[in-house]
Design a protein around this nucleic acid. Structure first.
Lengths: 158, 158
DNA sequence: TATAATTCCTACTAAACCTATAGGAACACT
DNA sequence: AGTGTTCCTATAGGTTTAGTAGGAATTATA
């Protein structure tokens, strides 16, 4: 009974910070309102350390994904409709902030045996991942979650 | 002129160690021989630190991917024909050695808003990656490299 | 005007991970 | 024996990650 579902072979493609960023934006998108949502509310809803989320949201604001309102009943809201925002955009920004994000940049000067074949493999991999990322908007995610929850049938024990 | 090709958005999916492991096995596969190849030769051919490669090969041996012969003209060779060995098997082993490799294991007790949608997204991502990994054998890689090199036309300057 | 609640900015820290190195033991061929 | 190789274990430096902290700036409200 110990968290045995959803074991992935793929090693941490998405950092915790990035997942929090996605969660936060998802939370804003799923509220279907223009009102500002407090950090503490988002943090509570998505089980994120409020202080950590604070930093993340500042970055997301600087990137133009969200906007904010300060003061007594301030908070965060989406800067653009969720139909226009893809998961890929957010991931590219958050992960892209890290220093070295290059998978394998092959210097033309020193070709090794296998460079072509591997380079092509990594290219196909990258394209495949990008296709999924860039096609999925937050509107899609919210819609999918809604229909999933609607069709959810709890295990009643009478 | 500074390594500007092959820039990937995708952040380091494959560790350096894992790429070396793939390279080493590729090198063995591409030699089409049953003779043992020395660590130093593999390291030279693939531009890998010999001492680091040493550790990697020991692990690959313990996993059953390669076999070895000790002594004066010892070395490494494939433990199975390259047609039977996929890139995915090697990646799963090398990356799987790391401690926490779980993408998002959702405890059923605490469901958050978005769990379903994200879980499904990661699942699709994982499947997409696994499809590429598990279908590509080292025989395929060697073949692809061979045809690529054959059709390579250098830039002559007369 | 004062107060309280909030976002904003910068710095810091502890732990984990990654890459690589090192020393020497075990083994096999000559 | 002796030489060249693989094998095993430990360790160390650097980078990244995840999260914390203090306090300044801003805004609503009393």
């Amino acid at each position: 009974m110990m968290d045995m579902e959803n074991i992935y072979i793929t090693p941490k493609i998405i950092s915790q910070k990035c997942r929090y960023a996605l969660r936060a934006i998802f939370e804003l998108a799923s509220r279907h309102t223009t009102e500002a949502v407090k950090i503490s509310d988002i943090a509570a809803a998505q089980a994120i350390s409020p202080r950590f989320l604070e930093n993340i949201l500042v970055e997301l604001k600087q990137a133009g994904f969200v906007a904010s309102k300060r003061g007594n009943d301030g908070g965060y809201f989406l800067a653009q409709p969720p139909e226009n925002l893809t998961v890929g955009q957010v991931i590219a920004f958050v992960q892209g902030t890290a220093k070295s994000n290059v998978m394998a940049s092959v210097g033309l000067g020193s070709l090794r045996n296998g460079d072509y074949a591997f380079s092509h493999l990594w290219q196909r991999l990258n394209d495949s991942i990008a296709a999924i990322y860039n096609q999925m908007t937050f509107a899609d995610l919210v819609k999918e979650e809604a229909t999933a929850v609607k069709s959810y049938v709890p295990n009643y024990v009478i």
